[in-house]
Amino acid sequence: MSAATAPTTTASPGPAPVARRRRPDAGTVLLGIWGVLGFLFLFFPVLVIVAYSFNEGRLLQSYRGFGLGAYEDALTNSAITSGVQVSIYVGIFSALVAAVLGSLAGVAVARRAGARWIGWLTALLGLVMVTPEIVNAVSLLPWFVTLGTDWGFTPLNSGIVRLIVAHSLFSCAVVTFIVRARMAGLSESLEEAAADLGAPPLRRFLDITFPLMRPAVISGALLSFTLSLDNTVLSSFVSTADATPFPVYVFASVRSSLRPAIAAMSTLMLLLTLVALALVAVVLITSRKRTGEGMSLASTLAGG
């Protein structure tokens, strides 16, 4: 049967245009089923957490009816709210540190890609990214103690400062690689053109280089922020009693008892993360629309 050759002779009232679509083969269908199952798997525990945040029971694991009590608890429990405050504070500042240091390094690495020491730096940044967090954590703890207590480097006795420094390390590497990818895609002749038109070096950076790398810097900073919010291992080692970020509080609760309030606050934090991610997407998409080029969102978030 061909829908194209006999447009009017068939009397059947069936929806004719549908038949024109090529039917997907069995392999595609199986892949599709696999993909959907995969997504269900990925979302399953997240949905469980969201569902259990409406648990009216005393313990998180045993469901005792629907209610918003957990949210009220979460927002009034000072341990939780101060934990969230510490998390957000640390997230913002570590993201700032990473954005500044990483952007500078990203420009350098992209523009001096041939130099040998750039190779060493790239290797070091790669090492930062592949070192297990636990090794980082156990090495930073004695180092902070040594610097802060023994060598009198007192700012490092503050839990907040320690958290910001610790979280910034991985984020620096992330921002560097994102900015490098962006800069590598930009022709150096743009900067030459600015020079040609009379712009001295600093103006050139402010007029041309920075605006063009800005989407990468912003998305790198927002990613750093979410990484910092997520961080548990480093935080639980370097934090001090007066500055306990939310994940560390949760991790401590795992050993004693988990309450629905934790699920409630986690759900709120998830929303916060999603907003940050949405911002990354908006930044990248608008910059691509405006300039007609840019990185794919996926490539950026996957790190290059």
Binding site: S187, S189, L190, E192, A193, A194, A195, D196, L197, G198, A199, P200, R204, D207, I208, P211, L212, R290, T291, G292, E293
Partner: peptide, 28 residues
Amino acid sequence: PPYRRPVNTVFQSYALFPHMSVAKNVAY
């Protein structure tokens, strides 16, 4: 340096600033 020379260049790939409008490019 180039920014103090009385010359201007038309680059091979044009090197128009992608984040500026045509008018801003010309006014730069």
